[in-house]
């Protein structure tokens, strides 16, 4: 994690969903199109083949990058229900702590243990 953050110094400190590039379909479509092309010219064929290989590699890179970026997204370690449950737990905790503080502050008598 640290290494990757050092590599991308310009990367935002908190990633959002908008930062994740998941536009795979156009690239896949382009690859299929270039595969389906059947040029008669051999030079053109080898050029297209090289181009297709590049695009496939690009797709792979894009998929890998999307995986990396998704792992950096905040708050998705749990699914929605669990997250909401956690939120509830936190709210409850805060309420209890506030109550405890209130109790402490309004305590007017001390119980002294009998020696």
């Amino acid at each position: 994690m640290q290494d990757s953050s050092e590599q991308h110094e310009t990367a935002p400190t908190t990633w959002t969903v908008d930062d994740v590039d998941v536009e795979f379909l156009p690239l896949i479509y382009e690859i299929i199109r270039s595969l389906e092309k059947d040029p008669h010219d051999n030079a053109q064929k080898s050029r297209d083949s090289l181009d297709t290989t590049q695009k496939i590699l690009e797709l792979q890179r894009k998929l890998e990058k999307a995986r990396e970026q998704i792992r950096k997204l905040p708050g998705i370690e749990y699914n929605t229900e669990e997250q909401l449950k956690q939120l509830d737990v936190l709210r409850n905790q805060l309420r209890l702590k506030r109550e405890l503080l209130h109790k402490y502050r309004n305590m007017c008598s001390f119980e002294i243990p009998k020696a």
Binding site: T16, V17, V20, L73, G75, I76, Q83, L84, Q86, L87
Partner: peptide, 14 residues
Amino acid sequence: LERAREQARVELKM
């Protein structure tokens, strides 16, 4: 991803 966006909002609250 939309759900993740929502979860990020909730995470901020948390």
